[in-house]
Each structure stands twice: as C-alpha cells, then as structure tokens.
Write a protein that binds this DNA or RNA. Structure first.
Lengths: 205, 205
DNA sequence: TAGATTGTTAATCGATTAACAATC
DNA sequence: TAGATTGTTAATCGATTAACAATC
C-alpha cells in the first residue's frame, strides 16, 4: 500500500538496494528474494519487504523478485529512470576525478556543465565538455534549469557557490568540499566526507 | 555515565559534531551549547546532550561546552587523537585526487602508502610518496601493520584487493570503487557512493 | 542572585522484527 | 500438491524528545 509519508531512512536504503540489484544483474542473475538481498547487505529480509511495501508490491509469493522489474520500479520511485543533468563546480584534482568518474552512467545522472573561476581553466576541455566561467554560474544554471549540482571547490568558496546555485533554483547539492554547508528549507545538501567515515570506523578498532 | 554499548548511530554522529566544532573553532569561537550545535546541524539539543552522555560529561551547566575541550574528548573517543597510517590502493584519477585531498590533515589520518598494479605508475612519485607495486600489497601492509585502507581501483579489482588487505590484517576499508564489497565479521567496510546520495536527493525533487 | 544550560529520567515516537495468512 | 516467499499485522525493540532538578 503506497503511502505519502515514507520515512527518510527507508528512502535512503533504496539506492543501496539498487546497487546490489545492479551487481546481481551484471552477474546474469534474474531472480532474487528478500532473504538473499538481505544477506548480501546485512539487513533482515523482513526489513527489505517492509521497505518495499511502502511503495507497492513488486514480488511474487513463492518466487521472489524479478531483478530487472525491481530495478525499474525502484528507479521510478527515486526518479532516476531518466537522466538528470548535473553541474560540477570546481575543476581541481577532485573535480577532475569526479568528472571522469564512470559511476554516474546508467544510474540516473550525467554531468552536463563544468564551472571554475580560474582563467587558466576556463575554456579548456575535459572529455567533451568545456569548462565554463563561474562568473556566469547563476545565469547558466537558471537557463538550463539545473536542479542538482556537485561542489568540488576549495572549502573557502563552497558556501558562496552553494548560495549562488540556490538562487539559480538548484534543489540538491552534493558537497565534496571539507566544510559544512547551510541551506534553506527545501534545498537538500549531502556532504561527502570520507574522513567522517574513517573516524566512524576507527571507533571500533 | 559511559557505557559499553553505544548505539552505532550515535557513534556515527560524533564525526559530524567534530566537523561542526572544527568549523566553529576555525572562526575563533571558544564556547558553544547543545542548542547552538543542534541548530547548525538540524538536530535537537536533547539529542546532542544524550549522545555525549554515553561517553561522559563534557559541559558545564549554565555555560555550555568549551569547544577545544569537546574536540579533544570526541577525538579521544573516536581514537583519532593520534594519526593513523592509511594505505591508498589504485592511483588513477580518483586515487590522485584522494592522495592530494587536504581534508585528512589534522583529522586523524595520513596517507602513508600508495599502491598500483600498473608498471607505468609503479615507482613514480606523488607528493612525497612513491607508488608501490600492488603485487607486494599483502606483505607491505602486514609489515607496516596498516589497519585502514582506501580502495580506489576499478570496480573489477576492488573485491580481490579488499580480500588481500583483509588477509594482511586490515580492519577498516573505505571503498571508492562503484561496487559493493563483502567482508568477514570484524572488518568494517564503508562505501563512498556519490550516486547513492544523488539518488536519495532526487526522490524529494 | 537570576539566568542559562547541562546531564538524566521518563514518556513518546518510530523503526525493526517475528510471525503468518495468502498464494505463486 | 508441497515448498517457498511475499506482503502485512502486531509485538518488540530502540531511539528521540520533553521536561526538570542540579548547578555553574
């Protein structure tokens, strides 16, 4: 029974399920069960079934889930059936790596715009994209109606870049800069902080 | 009252607190309160006090928390008061960016070893480190008693690299490769998957 | 002192799990 | 059919919040 009020934490697990399903599909597997999926992810089978039940019925009693079908459905739920155009701001080492990262392909995103404020970088090409002048960030994002950006600038620039993006109508920010960003209601920010994960793990060492 | 059984989710918030405290400290601030910290992070003040109470008493009634002291205490709890030596395996675009990332400094980690299996890369230098031959990964990690590695290899190599690291005694793996890794009990794996975050955010668009 | 904020208790809220009828 | 697995309900478990005495 689909509901309007799906817990945040449930939505957050859907990309994990999607990743595991893609892995199985790549190995040629066609069917899986909540039990198998749960074992792979260290999650109970009941939780997987419960999570999915927030959105509908995707399996078959006695059989399990058809992987390709479940992938399609979860992609639809997450709105990544079609590809989103994403802008990347800050083309330093990290930005380069992000721009060349092949993990976006077929997962709902493609990098459509690159920005930097360094005259030495503006106008250069990276893959089949030209690095644009960050001075025109706001106008360009608004024109192209970009809703999602990734920020890979130095820490000191990240907040003002974020502010500009938000003014241009951006609603989701993935922040690679080592700094906490603040954003108004209605704009989602995720911080990709490798050190936070490392620190978490060292607690248990 | 410190307890032996601190919930995982509480430990996971400590690095976030630490990051916010570092930000305040960098701005010259000396004192904060659970209320202020909570507002910055979108967390209730009660939760912050409750979280900290698992480990001890770090504040002063009527005043709040001395930032430098709280930082020290949380670092001690997370075992990042001293720096851990970390190995980085896979020196492609992403590995380069990780190696040059300045966010590790002063947060409990430093990259001590670089590995790749490409003869063209082995022996070259990156900063003040030489890229070592991944063929000797296991021996070298064991000799140096490395407990933490970051994997930035292509997806196809990541699991076997992880297995080798685990055989060498590694207990914590930060995985940048776009693939789910499996590891035995006692080894912690964190997957740094930017696309999972993007997919989570698009749900709300 | 008066005001503020901690650490902690108890109450509330929400998420996870166990169990099972339905059914493929 | 017999076996397996779903989707869902109810019970359990755990985390968050509200409230407040203690006290700086």
């Amino acid at each position: 029974m689909p509901s309007a009020e799906v817990p945040d934490i449930v939505v957050g697990r859907l990309p994990i399920y999607l990743r595991a399903l893609a892995f199985m599909a790549a190995a040629g597997q066609e069917i899986t069960s909540s039990h198998e999926l749960g074992q792979k992810l260290g999650i109970s089978s009941a939780q997987i079934r419960k999570d999915l039940s927030h959105f509908g019925e995707f399996g078959k009693q006695g059989t399990g889930y058809r992987i390709s079908h479940l992938q399609e459905q979860i992609k639809r739920i997450l709105k990544v059936s079609q590809e989103w155009e994403v802008a990347l701001i800050g083309i330093g080492d990290l930005g380069h790596a992000v721009a060349r990262y092949n993990g976006f392909k077929n997962r709902g995103f493609h990098i459509a715009l690159l920005f930097d404020n360094d005259p030495a970088k503006i106008g250069t090409r990276l893959g089949d994209l030209e690095v644009l002048d960050a001075a025109r960030l706001k106008e360009t994002l608004a024109e192209r109606q970009i809703k999602i950006v990734m920020i890979a600038t130095p820490a000191g620039d990240a907040q003002s870049v974020a502010d500009t993006c938000i003014e241009a109508g951006v609603k989701a920010i993935l922040n690679y800069a080592p700094i906490s960003l603040t954003a108004p209601e209605g704009v989602r920010v995720q911080h990709l902080d490798p050190v936070a994960y490392l620190q978490w793990m060292t607690y248990y060492l």
